[in-house]
Amino acid sequence: MINLLKKASFFIAAVIIVIIFLIFTRDTTEKQEEIPDLQAVSSSDNPFEQSAETSQPAEKFAVVDIKGAIASPGVYEVSPDARVNDVILTAGGFTADADENQINLAQKVQDEMIIIVPEIGVEGAAGGGTAESNGKIKVNTASQEEIEQLPGIGPAKAEAIIQHREEHGLFNSIEDLLNVSGIGQKTLENMQDAIQIP
């Protein structure tokens, strides 16, 4: 009888130990499973990390060729928001014989733009590179006087073209000129063979 009680108590103690062991291992397993979930949330659902990764667009440049009475003529990469004055400063500034009055320092640059700084006493293109060798006028860089040389364009329409260019950016195609106040399809047809874009 005593042996039976000993065996029974031993069996009960063993069962209790097994139950405690199972409960303990179950708790630790659940805790281990919860840790990766927290790590996953912190690594994938963090809006600050995602915004940092996605808010770095590739930086773009405008490539500009500056020639003439300038300290270091050449081709330069500048910000697309740069002005002619920024390019001149990047190229070392004017030489002593440069005619600064023929250059529009406030003009925005564009990719593939040519800036020609004339010498004093030499007729140059204001802003640089406004007329092509084929005689066409580059409306993205031309002065008002040069735009007025286009067929069907007087002072008012030339001013409207320059104002639109300054407010909305450079023209990407000839058809963009239709967005200028006072220029319709007929006017565009009359002058499209005389203009160059860009």
Rank of each mutant, 00 (worst) to 15 (best):
Q50M: 03
V109S: 07
K108Y: 11
S143L: 09
D65A: 12
F21K: 11
A62W: 03
G93T: 03
K67W: 10
D176E: 12
L89F: 01
Q163R: 05
Q102R: 09
D86F: 02
K136I: 00
I116E: 15
K67V: 14
K157M: 10
K157L: 14
T28H: 12
Q32R: 09
G152M: 07
G92V: 00
D193V: 02
T141L: 11
I20G: 15
D45C: 05
E189Y: 07
A106I: 07
F10I: 01
A52T: 03
G154K: 15
E132D: 15
S44N: 12
Q144V: 15
Q110N: 12
E146Q: 14
T95E: 11
E53I: 06
F10Y: 01
E53P: 00
A194H: 09
S42M: 05
V84F: 08
Q39C: 02
A142I: 15
S44L: 11
F171I: 07
A98H: 11
N134W: 00
Q185I: 12
K186F: 06
I17N: 01
I183W: 04
I137Y: 00
N190W: 00
V41Q: 11
L178D: 10
I20W: 08
V109E: 07
Q102M: 10
E159R: 15
I19D: 09
G127E: 07
G93Y: 05
E77V: 02
A158T: 07
N3M: 00
A13V: 01
